[in-house]
Computed example of a mutant assay.
Amino acid sequence: MTITISNLQPIIAILAGVLILIVPRLLNYIVAVYLILVGLIGLGVFRGLS
């Protein structure tokens, strides 16, 4: 099975949701990191790595 970004997004969302339920203070950091990563992926920054 090939792992792509479309496969990783639901897994990342589930992990982030569980972490937010366990430690609500992490919400700001999780959202910030997620938005930065989605922005970088959208700009194609990680295309050269694969």
Rank of each mutant, 00 (worst) to 15 (best):
V45A: 15
S6Y: 10
G42D: 10
G42N: 14
L26F: 05
L27G: 05
I41K: 12
V18H: 04
L26W: 03
A13T: 09
L19N: 00
L40A: 10
V23R: 01
I41A: 11
G44V: 08
I5M: 12
G42S: 13
A32L: 15
V18M: 10
A13L: 12
G39Q: 08
I3V: 13
I22Q: 02
Y29D: 15
F46L: 15
G17T: 02
I14R: 10
Y34T: 11
A16W: 02
I11T: 04
G48F: 11
P10V: 01
G44R: 12
S50T: 04
G42E: 14
F46P: 03
I11K: 03
L26E: 03
L40T: 00
S50I: 11
L19Q: 05
A16S: 11
S50N: 12
Y29K: 14
I20S: 01
G44P: 06
L49K: 09
I41W: 12
V33P: 02
V38Y: 10
L37C: 12
G39T: 05
A16Y: 02
L40D: 05
T4M: 10
P10Q: 05
G44W: 09
N7C: 06
M1F: 12
L43G: 09
M1S: 13
I20E: 00
G48H: 07
L40E: 10
V31Y: 07
I11W: 07
L37V: 13
F46E: 10
V45M: 11
I30A: 07
Y29I: 13
G42K: 14
T2G: 00
V23P: 00
A32P: 00
I22C: 02
G42L: 14
P10R: 06
Y34W: 15
Y29Q: 15
R47N: 15
N7V: 01
V33A: 15
N7P: 01
G17F: 06
P10C: 04
N28F: 06
G39P: 01
L15A: 10
Y29M: 15
L15G: 08
L21R: 03
L21I: 00
Q9H: 08
I41F: 11
R25E: 06
G48E: 12
V45N: 03
I11S: 03
Y34F: 13
I36M: 13
V45Y: 14
L15Q: 09
Y34K: 07
V45P: 00
S6K: 13
G17W: 03
V38T: 09
G48M: 13
I30V: 13
A32R: 09
I12E: 06
L49M: 14
N28S: 11
I22T: 01
I30P: 00
T4E: 12
L37F: 14
R25Q: 14
Y34H: 08
N28I: 06
V31K: 05
A13F: 03
L26Y: 01
L40V: 03
L49E: 10
I41D: 12
I11Q: 09
I11G: 01
I36S: 08
R25P: 02
L19R: 03
V18E: 09
L37M: 15
V18C: 04
L43D: 03
I12L: 15
F46H: 09
S50A: 12
A16G: 02
T2E: 14
G17I: 04
I12F: 07
A32W: 06
A16M: 03
Q9T: 10
L8N: 03
V31E: 07
N28M: 06
T2H: 07
M1I: 05
S6L: 14
G17S: 08
N7D: 15
V31D: 04
F46T: 03
